[in-house]
């Protein structure tokens, strides 16, 4: 009885993991497929499709996405840390209500936020800002609550005794913020900023309303193309953008590298 159950358990896990990895594996396989039909596992493979990525058709949207995601990550990082600092560290009056307000966009679906922003811009006659400025603003609205929440959590988990210890050693508030508080919340803030970059880079539901025709972000370019064709260049685009995201995460992990010292007892 127990044996059957154990087998069923392992089988279930294997099946679920297969389910999770299958589409990824299929896309990677398709990107290496030599034929333009991506219907079967390739028995021979080629990198030709990746060569097509340098065409303007894919390069321009990619660069736009990178530009927007970078600006969005920067803005939400700074604003989120400041807001979390005011609410959690300074404990300004009404902080619970303020926090609820700062996080309220999280409970509104992206597509609804997208509609609201495009309607608002049209009503006040600012269709002209559609494109990069509107995309940045909308993505900040999307990313800021996440960054604020992560920074606030880091600050709330921050051991107040460290701050007091620094104070008893004569550190002024400025010195404490610089030497103790910021370094301690850095990992949380960096993961928030990384997250902001990724959700901006991959975003569809907001961008779909706000891009200007002919000047789109990468995910929008991809779904527009997918309406017509499933050919392997799509697979190559997707794989390349995933590799790019992994590189970004790796980079941020390197920047926040001191976390290694916090968690592994280095000598």
């Amino acid at each position: 009885m127990n044996r059957v159950l154990t087998c069923a358990f392992w089988l279930a896990i294997a099946l679920v993991l297969t389910f999770i990895t299958l589409p990824l594996a299929v896309v990677v396989a398709a990107s290496l497929s030599p034929s333009s039909a991506v219907t079967f596992l390739p028995w021979e493979w080629t990198f030709d499709w990746y060569g097509d990525l340098l065409a303007d058709r894919w390069l321009q949207p990619f660069l736009l996405s990178v530009k927007i995601a970078t600006v969005v990550a920067g803005i939400s990082g700074v604003l989120g840390v400041l807001a979390a600092y005011a609410v959690v560290y300074e404990r300004i009056p009404g902080s619970t209500a303020i926090m609820a307000g700062l996080l309220s966009p999280l409970s509104v679906p992206q597509i609804v936020k997208g509609v609201a922003i495009v309607l608002f811009l049209s009503i006040i006659g600012l269709q002209g800002v559609l494109g990069t400025p509107a995309l940045i603003a909308a993505h900040v609205v999307l990313a800021l609550p996440f960054v604020t929440r992560m920074a606030a959590t880091s600050l709330a988990n921050f051991d107040g005794n460290l701050d007091r210890a620094a104070q008893s050693l004569g550190a002024t508030k400025r010195q404490r913020l610089q030497h103790i508080v910021l370094p301690m919340i850095k990992p949380g803030v960096l993961s928030g900023v990384t997250f902001a970059f990724i959700i901006s880079f991959n975003n569809i539901p907001l961008s779909v309303f706000l891009v200007r025709p002919g000047d789109t972000t990468l995910p929008i370019a991809v779904i527009n193309y997918l309406e017509y064709s499933l050919d392997p260049v799509m697979a190559a685009v997707n794989v390349a953008s995933m590799i790019f995201i992994l590189a970004v995460i790796f980079l941020f992990e390197k920047i926040g590298g001191f976390s290694a010292q916090l968690h592994g007892g280095s000598k």
């Binding site: 051991d159 005794n161 460290l162 007091r164 210890a165 050693l169 004569g170 550190a171």
Partner: peptide, 30 residues
């Protein structure tokens, strides 16, 4: 921070992102 008193905490409150030398030198550095 201007009372010039030392304080040892129950949970030590050592700065985890600083080495022993940096921890001990912190007060003078400030």
């Amino acid at each position: 921070e201007r009372r010039n008193l030392g304080l040892v905490f129950q949970n030590y409150a050592l700065f985890p992102h600083m080495t022993v030398i940096e921890n001990v030198g912190f007060g003078l550095r400030m």
